[in-house]
Design a protein around this nucleic acid. Structure first.
Length: 396
DNA sequence: GAGCCGTGGAC
DNA sequence: TGTCCAAGGCT
């Protein structure tokens, strides 16, 4: 009954597109079929999606687009506002590069994004993957973005052990060989749903390279998943080498993960008598660059004792430990932190500023600092009589 | 090339 | 709880 799947690359490409016509996911940054997407939206979504899941990005994307509908609007925003809108999304260099790139496009490129890979790749925060994705999806360039999804899908199809970044070139060649030769004129699943009143130049040709890119990524995200791939639902079925070999999950080869060390810190919740706490901005570069933070000891390998931590406090005070301590996992280390609280004199404190606790949500606070604030706020709300129960271990 | 750079969800 | 993972880029 089932026809054997041809291993001709073009045939596999056609099969993938046919599957995509049925299985296409509706995502906030995807235009209706038949419309050329707005390059600004494509670029914005691709930056947000770097190493970040679709479900996480969704609400951020919607908020950004509502607040800054065009690249010009984003360019006119302050970096502070952009970082604030980005808080919680992580990899904050992306937000800084996003803002820089928007300014570049708005001010020196006349508000138009470069329409090819080379030009796009010159924008800060745009690397090989993102340049190819935007070129294909927004401008119909005949290229294939190779991300983790595409690498996995192609590696499995051909039974390649290769992995990124070494195997990018080989994977690209294999993927591009499946790209339909040229856009075809005539009926297509896009053309059938083209809304009335849309001008012809707004209409994407069938088999647009952007559809192919999105099809590969959808396949990787929904069928050819890292764990427990749903091979029975795959349009490539019996053509897949990794499936034939019986262990599709073993492709591509995985890079052994270095162990994640633990660092320790004590965070100082320093209050004046007016409902304010001390905060400061982190350096522009490096971890949580440009984001706000509360004072803390250095983050070091060795735990802090109650005796030595206060030497790093921003001001003198009777520092009381709050419970519980918390852990926060960064990419290459985990932070084990404790919050201590004291009332300190409200005068100037070097490198720090006083900020109203009630308005902390106006600051660009990374998640790790929000955890600290939550612990401080929870303890602050307790009535004095409640205070001793939870800390047989931390009390002194 | 390898290390750095967040976060929350799935298992 | 711990581990792995996600539409990478920069230095």
């Amino acid at each position: 009954m089932t026809t054997p799947v041809s291993r001709s690359p073009k045939a596999l490409g056609r099969r993938l597109l046919a599957w995509y016509g049925r299985a296409r996911r509706r995502l906030p940054w995807r235009e209706g079929r038949g419309r050329h997407p707005d390059p600004y939206r494509v670029w914005l979504s691709e930056i947000m999606l770097q190493q970040t899941g679709v479900a996480t990005v969704g609400p951020y994307y919607e908020r950004f687009l509502a607040r800054w509908p065009t690249v010009g609007a984003l360019a006119r925003a302050s970096l502070d506002d952009v970082l604030h809108a980005w808080q919680g999304l992580g990899y904050y260099a992306r937000a800084r590069n996003l803002h820089r790139a928007a300014s570049l496009v708005a001010e020196t490129l006349g508000g138009r994004f470069p329409d090819d890979e080379a030009g796009l790749a010159r924008l800060p925060g745009v690397g090989p993957y993102t340049a190819a994705a935007v070129a294909a999806i927004a401008f119909g360039r005949r290229t294939v973005p190779v991300d983790g999804n595409v690498a996995r899908v192609i590696a499995r199809l051909h039974g390649l052990r290769t992995r990124l970044p070494e195997g990018r070139a080989a994977l690209f060649v294999r993927a591009r060989a499946m790209l339909p030769a040229r856009p075809e004129r005539g009926a297509s699943f896009e053309a059938r749903v083209t809304p009335v009143g849309v001008h012809s130049h707004d209409v994407k040709p069938a088999r647009h390279p952007g559809d192919f890119a999105e099809a590969l990524m959808d396949l990787g995200a929904t069928v050819c998943t890292p764990r427990k791939p749903r091979c029975e639902a795959c349009p490539w079925g019996s053509a897949c080498r990794a499936r034939a070999l019986g262990r599709p999950e073993e492709f591509p080869a995985k890079k052994p993960r270095p162990q994640r060390p633990t660092r320790h810190a004590v965070v100082f919740w320093a209050e004046d008598g007016l409902g304010r706490v001390l905060v400061r901005r982190r350096p522009e570069r490096g971890l949580l660059g440009g984001m706000m933070e509360f004072p803390s000891t250095p983050w070091r390998a060795k735990p802090w004792t109650d005796g030595e931590a206060p030497r790093h406090a921003p001001a003198q005070g009777a520092w009381r430990p709050l419970s519980p301590s918390f852990r926060h996992a960064f990419t290459h280390f985990a932070l084990e932190a404790r919050v201590v609280r004291a009332r300190v004199r409200g005068g100037a404190v070097r490198s720090f500023s006083w900020w109203p606790v009630a308005e902390l949500d106006r600051l660009a606070l990374p998640s790790v600092m929000k955890k600290a604030a939550k612990i401080a706020a929870a303890t602050g709300r307790k009535r004095p009589g409640n205070r001793t129960e939870s800390k047989a271990s931390s009390g002194r």
